Simulated assay, not measured.
Amino acid sequence: MPWLFPIAAFATLASIWLALSLRRDTLAFAMSGLTIVFATVTVFIALFTRGEVLPSTIDPAYSLTLDETASRHYTLVLMTWVGAIFLPLVIGYQAWNYHVFRERVRPHQGGLDQGY
């Protein structure tokens, strides 16, 4: 069911607008993350099921396939470990960043009425 992911990406994108209209910022933040995930999975499915990363317009023999464009085994293993270590750090930083900046600045609180 590869058609499910583009529909889910569109639905989560539409739900961002709805969540912002209802002033549900946390829900809008979560839906924007899901939109990115579903859109990325859609691109991966499109590349994987087709079997060609870059089809040639001159001759099909010149097309780039997944096997021809993949890195060596050592590079893939290394990048898997790097991703496994740093991806949770990046996600944790984003969650902390959202927690720090979760409230909007209000004019009567931020010193805007004092001239700076």
Rank of each mutant, 00 (worst) to 15 (best):
Q109V: 15
Q94C: 15
T35Y: 00
T12A: 05
V41W: 15
I7P: 05
R104A: 11
F44I: 14
L47N: 12
L27T: 07
L87S: 13
R72G: 15
A70P: 07
E52W: 08
T75A: 05
I7V: 15
H73S: 10
L22E: 10
L64E: 08
I7C: 09
R23M: 05
I85C: 04
H108R: 07
E52A: 09
R102A: 13
L66C: 06
A84V: 12
V41G: 11
L34Y: 05
L18G: 07
L66A: 07
S63N: 07
D67V: 01
L34S: 02
W81A: 01
P88F: 01
S21L: 02
V53G: 03
F38W: 05
S32F: 00
I45N: 15
W81C: 01
T35I: 00
L89K: 02
A39P: 06
S32W: 00
P60L: 05
T12Y: 10
W81E: 01
G110D: 14
L76H: 05
T80Q: 07
G83Q: 02
A9C: 15
R72T: 15
V100A: 03
F38P: 03
F10D: 12
R106A: 15
M79C: 00
S32N: 00
Y62K: 10
P6C: 03
E52H: 08
F29V: 12
Y93C: 00
L47T: 11
Y93Q: 00
G33L: 10
V43N: 11
D25R: 02
G110V: 10
L66Q: 10
Q114S: 11
T49P: 11
D59S: 05
T42G: 12
A28W: 13
I58P: 03
P60G: 10
R104T: 07
H108W: 14
F38N: 04
F10T: 14
F29Y: 15
P6V: 02
G115L: 13
V82M: 08
L34G: 06
P107K: 03
P107V: 09
I16E: 09
S56V: 07
A46T: 13
I91F: 01
W3N: 06
V82H: 04
G83D: 04
V41P: 14
L18W: 06
S71M: 04
Q114V: 03
V100P: 00
D67T: 03
L78R: 03
H99K: 12
R106M: 15
T80H: 09
P55T: 06
R104Y: 03
T40E: 04
F44N: 12
V77Q: 05
L66G: 12
F86T: 11
G115I: 13
Y98S: 07
A8R: 02
V77E: 08
A30I: 01
L20I: 11
T35W: 00
G51Y: 10
I85W: 03
A14F: 06
W96Y: 13
I36S: 10
F44T: 08
I85N: 01
T49D: 15
R24M: 12
I45H: 15
V82A: 09
D59C: 04
I16G: 10
L76N: 09
E52Y: 13
L47C: 12
Y116S: 15
R102M: 09
I36P: 05
F29M: 09
L54G: 00
F5L: 06
L87H: 11
